[in-house]
Amino acid sequence: GGHPVTTQMVETVQNLAPNLHPEQIRYSLENTGSVEETVERYLRGDEFSFPP
């Protein structure tokens, strides 16, 4: 991942996926670069990993 992630982006995802840890959200956003894509992954039931 190398996309810039803002606190705003993390908070937006958190509102839609409250049971995800912020670190999981941030890591996913760094890989996708997209709030929409991260939320899609969540709704699909994809696994969210923590940063290594």
Results as ranks from 00 to 15, higher is better:
31 N>D: 11
4 P>I: 15
40 E>H: 13
9 M>E: 06
25 I>S: 00
42 Y>G: 00
32 T>N: 05
35 V>P: 04
25 I>G: 00
13 V>P: 00
40 E>K: 15
15 N>A: 15
7 T>C: 14
48 F>P: 01
32 T>L: 05
32 T>S: 07
17 A>R: 02
5 V>H: 04
6 T>S: 10
13 V>D: 00
52 P>A: 09
14 Q>A: 12
23 E>F: 10
31 N>A: 14
26 R>Q: 08
6 T>G: 04
41 R>Y: 06
18 P>W: 09
1 G>T: 12
12 T>R: 15
42 Y>Q: 00
8 Q>I: 12
33 G>W: 06
34 S>Q: 03
42 Y>P: 00
49 S>Q: 14
13 V>K: 00
18 P>Y: 07
52 P>L: 09
36 E>G: 08
13 V>S: 01
2 G>F: 14
44 R>D: 04
31 N>G: 09
32 T>V: 03
14 Q>Y: 08
28 S>K: 02
20 L>R: 00
49 S>L: 15
2 G>K: 15
16 L>F: 12
13 V>E: 00
4 P>N: 13
28 S>R: 00
20 L>P: 00
20 L>Q: 02
52 P>R: 07
30 E>L: 11
8 Q>P: 06
44 R>W: 04
4 P>L: 14
48 F>K: 00
29 L>E: 00
34 S>M: 03
17 A>L: 13
46 D>K: 07
22 P>I: 13
6 T>V: 06
18 P>N: 06
8 Q>H: 11
33 G>N: 07
19 N>P: 05
2 G>Y: 13
11 E>A: 12
2 G>I: 14
3 H>F: 14
8 Q>D: 11
30 E>Q: 13
38 T>G: 01
3 H>C: 11
42 Y>S: 01
4 P>C: 15
43 L>Q: 09
33 G>F: 07
25 I>V: 06
15 N>Q: 15
9 M>P: 01
4 P>S: 12
47 E>P: 12
43 L>R: 11
15 N>F: 14
35 V>N: 01
51 P>C: 05
52 P>E: 08
52 P>K: 07
11 E>N: 12
36 E>D: 11
44 R>A: 10
51 P>H: 05
19 N>W: 09
11 E>R: 12
18 P>C: 10
11 E>P: 02
27 Y>V: 06
49 S>N: 11
33 G>V: 03
3 H>V: 10
41 R>D: 03
12 T>N: 10
32 T>H: 04
14 Q>V: 08
35 V>A: 06
22 P>R: 10
30 E>A: 12
17 A>M: 08
42 Y>N: 00
30 E>V: 08
5 V>K: 03
7 T>R: 14
26 R>N: 03
44 R>S: 07
46 D>I: 09
12 T>W: 15
14 Q>K: 12
22 P>G: 05
35 V>H: 02
36 E>C: 11
6 T>E: 04
50 F>D: 03
12 T>L: 15
16 L>Q: 09
4 P>G: 11
21 H>N: 08
15 N>V: 14
11 E>V: 11
40 E>G: 10
5 V>W: 11
45 G>M: 03
41 R>V: 04
46 D>S: 07
46 D>L: 12
39 V>T: 06
31 N>T: 15
24 Q>N: 01
19 N>L: 12
9 M>S: 04
22 P>H: 08
25 I>T: 01
7 T>G: 09
36 E>P: 07
4 P>E: 13
38 T>C: 05
38 T>R: 00
36 E>I: 11
50 F>T: 03
18 P>K: 08
33 G>Y: 06
34 S>L: 03
13 V>T: 05
9 M>R: 03
22 P>N: 05
35 V>F: 04
18 P>I: 08
1 G>I: 12
